[in-house]
Design a protein around this nucleic acid. Sequence first.
RNA 1: CGGGGCGUAGCGCAGUUUGGCUAGCGCGCCUGCCUUGGGAGCAGGAGGUCGGAGGUUCAAAUCCUCUCGCCCCGACCA
Length: 571
Amino acid sequence: MKWSQTLIPTLKESPSEAEIDSHKLMIRAGLIRRITAGAYAYLPLGTLVLNKVIDIVREEMNRAGAVEVFLPALQPLDLLEESGRLSVFGDDLITFEDRHGKTTALGPTHEEIVTDIVRNEINSYRQLPITLYQIQTKFRDETRPRFGVLRSKEFIMKDAYSFDVDYEGLNKSYKSMYEAYCRIFDRCGIDYIVVEADSGAMGGDVSHEFMVPSSVGEDILIRCLKCGYSANRERAEAAPVPRENHVSLQSLREVPTPNKHTIQEVGGFLDVKPNRMVKTMIYISNGQPIAVLLRGDHEVNETKLTKVLGQETVTLADHNTIEHVTGARVGFAGPVGLKIKIIADQAVSTLCNFVTGANKADTHLLNVNPDRDFKIDQVADIRYAVKGDKCPKCNHDLDISQGIEIGHVFKLGTKYSDALKAKFLDANGKEKSMIMGCYGIGVNRIIASLIERSHDENGIIWPLSLTPYKVIIIPVNVNDANSMQMANHIYDDLTNIAGIEVLLDDRDQRPGVKFKDADLIGIPIKIVIGKKFAETKELEIKLRKSGETFLTPPEEMRSRIESLFEMLSKP
RNA sequence: CGGGGCGUAGCGCAGUUUGGCUAGCGCGCCUGCCUUGGGAGCAGGAGGUCGGAGGUUCAAAUCCUCUCGCCCCGACCA
């Protein structure tokens, strides 16, 4: 492609709409333009990259035995209702009413559609297993789109769904997808880590998230850098906090704490650290209020709490309920004297002589101790791991960092096949629910997170696998006939004979402009036709990433480029 | 949805507090000259519903009311 014939609108200045590097660079390099909040147009360069990613995803899905389908963006609400997810998606669902008054949704994901197809078309174990996938735009009315294509209202997702006759089959399908994901991200040249994730209300026992470490990531990763344990924030466990030794129990004492209701206020007022305090939160579980005890510096993990309680959902009690249950204003609840079930986090169960609310306005209790002063009905891990926690596997310090989720593999089990009655007859003629898995990849996110990790002050640095063009030819002076003739010759040779994607910067611009632009759009290999060519007929090859330069006579250019490809495609 | 900020040329911004003459600057764009190894220089030029509607005033980018859009923080994110 010749630069003058395509559209690569680069910008010298950073657009005011962008905050993070990848977003700024995608706009500055002319990959995307914002059309409205959370929706982006991909310009020619962006489209080339998008298609590179899609090609890799498609190849690896096919290699893993998945079969491609193409599903509608329009979805009837009744399928979502049937699976029970209409309320789950809630306001995230983008819907509209057609001319007949029927409400239709723009698909936020496609479990229901695929399951509907499969339940209609597959009835026998002989037709299983099968994994269907598609690459398509999804629509979600995000409360706050941000970071460019990292969180947008419409985004491209590869989603695959596996259907098996039993859990053994599911495990195989899952493993196969997991491995395909590794190959995809490896080929994209992206650094990623896999973390255990909670399968939550989705059912099933395992789920893994593929994360790109990044300080702009919205997900939190908890890892042990020693033994390799890694999980997301919802899932991560911490080694149990050991019991304090040789502590003599002090006598319980009531202290006035006028108008101090937060951990911070009370701690400051009484000069007690948050980790010597216990907060008492009233939750509603199964219609009944329960008390949840956590150390002052810890936060409740509702995912864990829900699971421990064996409920679908738990919710924080409202102020009226709290006052009714504790007999005091919000902010003064404590376990002593409570008549409801008390569930304590493990870190609370090993604590002595702590501070709690007194269930009495403007009053707290000092030197509270379990067993002596109140009874814990259940001890469990119901909090988020925090800095300072130890690895549950090897007791080494846990590392807490951020990441961008680019893929997620899920063992669904029978959640959707049960709800949507996707059943089959097994070899014994017995009707069974299909065992499902689902597997998603955020295609746009691969691009943004790659740029987030692979750029410098001059611009993007593409890996060979995703770059829109592998080579850019820069004739320093397009008005010099010899240079241009050589430029065209190399261009034809590489493009037509070697099948390499080449961009020829044929613009009548000063060299500085062209070099800056080439760096900004991140093309891995530059071929410069300039001073050296005039002097010795040699061409200069410069690598974007390392800055290395080589001089090559024109006749050796093709073999030289090919050997560079080999070098560059190694990690 | 709560809090904050912004909307002036394709992009980045000044001007708004304290209303006043033809609405400015940098980049980009067009023409010419000059230049050709890291975003040159000179000269000339095009480009504006000052987000929109209504109001106050002799006079509104500037003040008032309403409205639309965008960004940031938070909440939210199977």
